[in-house]
Design a protein around this nucleic acid. Structure first.
Lengths: 376, 376
DNA sequence: CTGAAAGCGCTTACAG
DNA sequence: CTGAAAGCGCTTACAG
């Protein structure tokens, strides 16, 4: 692990602490407060506050003096004090399953921007899709007196969430379809999305299909399974052309899980390189793009051609889906929009009289190269 | 975009707001405060505070009464008031380039955990590697009275950052090698890492190498270029075996950028499927894994075999690197550790007398399948 | 060891 | 329209 000998001469120096010579002002001790501004402007602190909060029109000359003083002192209101006095905080908690899943991160990028536009600051954390972690995190957030919380719930019962809502902390459920009556929610129709994927494969002529689902402990997985079943039972049943659906479940929504599953399945069947066992599914629908990513990776490693020998469809349309070695056909979720909408609902929910709303976006299918009719 | 007809009957109902019937307590109006606890326990507010803050040993029976009252009321201290009184906030700002880049997100996951362990809350935001956005964000964070900031700087001059440090807000630079004297920093040795990658290719026998760099406006790109040059000039110069280095720069560190570059390069050369133009590099070193991802994707699309026809090496070792269709050889950065270390330095920097420290981790090379000797 | 009091920095009725 | 005063919820010297 040693560095190359070509490393530049900078090293572990710089133990001393120096104040940057660029500074003009003296001791970095204490920032100016309202009363410093008031003193400099020759008015009362009340007037300073009035100028800042644009209240009952302040006389022009007073406002000018105050503004000059503010500029001169570089005064900036202490948000902690404002929060205490006003009884609200700018902090909004966002709790998702996994910070390294592109789905959540693309949504978070949308949330962050919208939140910032509204003067809020996002506090992002992960629950690892674990109910206990979720409970702990939620309580911690409540302890921070957040203005509200955006939550992708792992806990089906939502005990702690209800508790916080009752305590007056608004919560909007993110990426959560079947929702209780006291929280707004934003999601896509997972069930319809999964149905779309299966119908696509059915349309192409596939009759032996594997649905590689995530853990059924998460609601999205259960919804998507329902959608898969919807599509199949909705298909015109033809006794001469039966559909053979296989459902498997992997431990989490990761590439690793998809890869491991495929390896195990194919090793067990003992098929050689470039070939699939007899009777193997002609198409695989994966519960998210990351799983599909692992599946495709392993298939290519075995020299199986996609989509000639087998079709693969994902779910989410994360940005790398289009850049995969074989561009992935997938169910697209508008992640940023979901994030933005969730923030809007949360901000609105700050008013206790605001109605609870459930926004369900419709997913759509993006057909790329990883799906085709089955080999004859 | 209409949903499948198989959609479940749940719809956009639920406009009414109901209090969950599970609740036992009445109006969710106002949480209990110290004085409520004091009244119930029959002591002064000071004693309540003493119990909470484990100060000058409180008498046992008093402590017991107070604790009972706290439990009974479900009292939890108001963190805003605590922050105001104590003069510190639990909020720590984290400003990175891009929330959707796995490198930053894996680091952020490490930061989040460490921060939470220390009672802090992470506020995550992105600068888009843009100096103006960075300045705006930094000021916003300062306005939130954060306890400190973890920053991946886009602005070489670090004006605003210095300003905040002078104002007393500690900043630790993340993923930033050449650092000023008033801020601690955490990074890997980018230069050495890049040298490692090139030496690997040179060792394999490659003599026509392309370095596909990110925008030279970002420091990491400049450092990695230096490392590339280090490795080449450090190689035993053999006039009969010259090294031909090409350097190209793409607009950002994304798969899309890598893909676009390759497409343009190969289209211009008009090479057919499965072949590379004469004199084309036999190896490509990409400035990060995402770029490599796009490069590999496009190459496979053209039926070019990796590593038989061309080797590809990345930088970062993000988790999907190992799961790519051809597992990527790459320079590994310990992202979570970097994140954790950055937090530790920041927390320490809260003490103004703490020394400025620069921690440089050594990268190492992970050799997978995407690199091999050049075709004879 | 405990209680009464001051004060963190700001905002908001309330008199003038 | 402006100023003096009270108070957001908590913590911390300081007397008792």
């Amino acid at each position: 692990m040693a560095s190359s000998g070509q490393t530049s001469p900078r090293g572990r120096t710089g133990r001393s602490r120096q104040t940057s010579p660029a500074t003009t002002t003296a001791p970095p001790i204490k920032p100016p407060g309202v009363k410093d501004v008031a003193a400099l402007a020759g008015v009362s602190v009340g007037s300073v506050s009035n100028v800042i909060n644009r209240r009952g029109s302040v006389r022009d000359d007073v406002r000018a003096r105050v503004e000059r003083a503010i500029a001169q002192l570089g005064y900036v209101p202490n948000p902690t004090a404002q929060a205490l006095r006003r009884g609200v905080s700018p902090l909004v908690g966002v709790a998702v399953f996994d910070l390294t899943n592109p789905f959540f991160m693309e949504a978070a990028a949308g949330m962050e921007q919208r939140l910032r536009d509204n003067g809020c600051v996002m506090s992002l954390a992960s629950t690892h899709a674990d109910p206990d972690d979720e409970a702990t995190l939620l309580r911690a957030l409540a302890g921070q007196a957040v203005r509200g919380i955006l939550l992708t719930p792992a806990d089906t019962r939502l005990d702690v969430a209800h508790e916080l809502v009752d305590r007056g902390i608004p919560i909007v459920l993110f990426d959560c379809p079947d929702t209780p009556d006291d929280m707004s929610s934003v999601s896509i129709d997972d069930r319809a999305g999964a149905a779309l994927a299966i119908e696509h494969l059915l349309d192409l002529g596939h009759r032996r299909i594997l649905f590689l689902n995530g853990p059924s402990s998460v609601r999205q997985a259960r919804q998507r399974l329902l959608g898969v079943q919807d599509a199949i039972s909705g298909w015109r049943a033809d006794p001469d052309d039966p559909i053979d659906l296989d459902v498997a479940e992997v431990a989490d929504f990761t590439a690793q899980a998809g890869r491991d599953y495929m390896r195990a399945a194919l090793d067990a069947d003992g098929s050689g390189p470039g070939s699939l066992p007899d009777g193997f599914p002609t198409a695989i629908f994966c519960a998210n793009d990351l799983i599909a990513f692992g599946v495709v990776g392993h298939l290519r490693e075995r020299a199986v051609e996609i989509p000639r020998q087998i079709s693969v469809v994902g779910f989410d349309d994360i940005s790398i889906a289009a850049d995969m070695s074989v561009p992935l056909t997938t169910v697209c979720q508008p992640m940023r929009e979901l994030g933005v909408e969730a923030v809007d609902l949360l901000l609105r929910a700050t008013d206790p009289d605001a109605p609870v709303e459930h926004r369900t976006f419709n997913p759509h299918l993006v057909v790329r190269d990883s799906s085709a009719p089955p080999a004859p």
